[in-house]
């Protein structure tokens, strides 16, 4: 994936690139508000599920109190964003998707102010399309202009299937830049990194004691019914017993649920996160320590972000930084 492209200045806005592409297609017309692939409301390709997991601690029916006082333990926060712009279908009705992914680490200084680590964000722009069926002329000129073209190899005839495939590819690209940053961190730093999302898919950081993954969404519930019941029964500041999470193509990590805030009464998972740490160094004491560090990040609250019950302020700050740093 490329970080610059000919004919356009590095860091050109998504809209500028999209106009450029429209020009390649011989169309000067461009929607005033170009649509993103996410806005099409495509169905979630991964079904919701409850999966069993091997317990690492004695299975508890309810929440386990996290001993001690919450205290800051993280030195930095890692998160990523993704954006997409859909070009209207070409002669064959195959849409092109221009995607941008970015990730950054914001480190906490001694004065408790966040600064960007590692020289800035990693930003990648690519053109996503099923190369075999897309307008080859346009793709050729885009490639000649320096744009990175990613073949989504989408097979479905429906344009939404093409978009879904593009979104999957963009999501993977985002995971890749996050993994790249996390790997750099673990290689260079000794302090602890708070990763927004799991670490199991990050490669080397999944086995590092310098990265902790915190998952906000719970489409897949790990630990079976017992863990889920325990999670729902937790009071704020409590955790479940730990278990092992394994997946296809992912590392094995130790995991547990932790309630940061009381739920709002509508979402049963409200206020609950799932923590992932390297399984090699797992102990119950470490689970308690990591839980205390995470609980300490409840303040300041990440409001006005609607996910504030499960999102620490540091992650919100990374997202804000990326939104400001990556032009639309």
């Amino acid at each position: 994936m490329g970080e610059s492209y000919g004919g356009l200045p590095p860091g050109a806005s998504m809209e500028a690139v999209a106009r450029f592409l429209a020009g390649l297609r011989g169309s000067s017309a461009w929607p005033a508000s170009p649509a993103s692939a996410e806005s099409f409301g495509l169905p979630e390709r991964r079904p919701a599920a409850v999966v069993d997991a091997d317990p690492l601690e004695e299975v508890a029916e309810g929440g386990l109190a996290v001993p001690g006082v919450p205290e800051p333990g993280f030195a930095a926060f890692l998160d990523g964003i993704q954006r997409s712009v859909v070009l209207p279908g070409g002669p064959h009705g195959v849409p092109l998707v221009y995607g941008t992914v970015a990730a950054a680490i914001r480190r906490r200084r001694d004065d408790r102010v966040l600064e960007t680590w590692g020289g800035g964000a990693i930003v990648r722009h690519s053109l996503y399309a099923p190369v075999a069926r897309a307008d080859r002329g346009v793709l050729g000129q885009a490639g000649a202009a320096g744009l990175d073209v990613v073949d989504t190899a989408a097979e479905g005839a429906h344009p939404h299937e093409v978009l879904s495939a593009a979104l999957d590819a963009i999501h993977r690209a985002r995971g890749a830049v996050e993994a790249e940053l996390a790997t750099r961190w673990c290689a260079r730093e000794t302090a602890l990194l708070y990763v927004d999302g799991g670490i199991a898919g990050l490669g080397e950081p999944a086995s590092s004691d310098r990265a902790v993954g915190v998952v906000k969404s719970h489409r897949t519930v790990y630990g079976g019914q017992a863990a889920m019941n325990a999670a729902f029964a937790m009071a704020a500041g409590q955790r479940t017993h730990a278990f092992t999470v394994e997946g296809r193509g992912r590392a094995s990590v130790a995991s547990w649920y932790l309630r940061l805030h009381a739920g709002d009464g509508t979402d049963p998972f409200g206020g609950i996160v799932r923590v992932e740490v390297a399984s090699g160094a797992f102990t119950s004491e470490r689970a308690d320590s990591v839980s205390r560090w995470i609980l300490a990040e409840r303040s300041p609250v990440a409001l006005p972000d609607p996910r504030w019950r499960v999102m620490p302020y540091g992650i919100r700050a990374v997202e804000e930084y990326l939104r400001a740093a990556v032009p639309r």
Binding site: R108, R112, L114, S299, P300, V301, L303
Partner: peptide
Amino acid sequence: LHDVLGADGSPERAMRVPTRRT
């Protein structure tokens, strides 16, 4: 109000947050 919420109404706790707001 968000600051009050985040600090549980305690100014002292508001001063001890691990991360200073932007």
